[in-house]
């Protein structure tokens, strides 16, 4: 196994972990972090493949695309965070789940009834 493949596969793994967390984590800030982690996994695949091109220097085109991607990701993150803070200020909740927050306050163990709420979370 060579370096390029190893880093590219790591990128795939990080992307998958980020995606999994995006769907399963409930707290909005956690979702924002998860989306960022998933994005960085994708960047790693790009840069690994750019490194693998034959010749002395790597391919600059994926580098430019990842640079653009990093800036777009930070603006999307900033907007998502402003939206999340606003959502929190208006509704007093930290996630999209409807009732589970009140429920959790009463009985922390009641997690099996939360399944329908997760659907809302996935839509983001």
């Amino acid at each position: 196994m060579n370096i390029v493949l190893l880093y590219a596969l790591t990128g795939c793994a990080i992307f998958t972990v980020g995606l999994y967390a995006l769907f399963t984590r409930r707290h909005l800030l956690r979702k924002v972090l998860a989306a960022n982690v998933a994005g960085s996994g994708l960047f790693l695949v790009f840069i690994a493949i750019a490194y693998g091109t034959p010749g002395e220097r790597p391919d600059p085109v994926p580098h430019a695309m990842v640079l653009t991607g990093i800036v777009v990701a930070v603006s999307a993150t900033a907007l998502a965070l402003v939206l999340a803070v606003r959502f929190r200020a208006v509704t007093g909740r930290t996630s999209f789940g409807e009732e589970e927050e009140a429920k959790r306050d009463e009985e922390p163990g009641a997690s099996s009834v939360k399944a329908p709420d997760d659907k809302d979370g996935e839509g983001t």
Binding site: V113, A115, D118
Partner: peptide, 12 residues
């Protein structure tokens, strides 16, 4: 509310 146990049902 910053701390949160892993939510969601197990099967999901």
């Amino acid at each position: 509310e910053s701390d949160e146990a892993e939510p969601g049902s197990l099967w999901l």
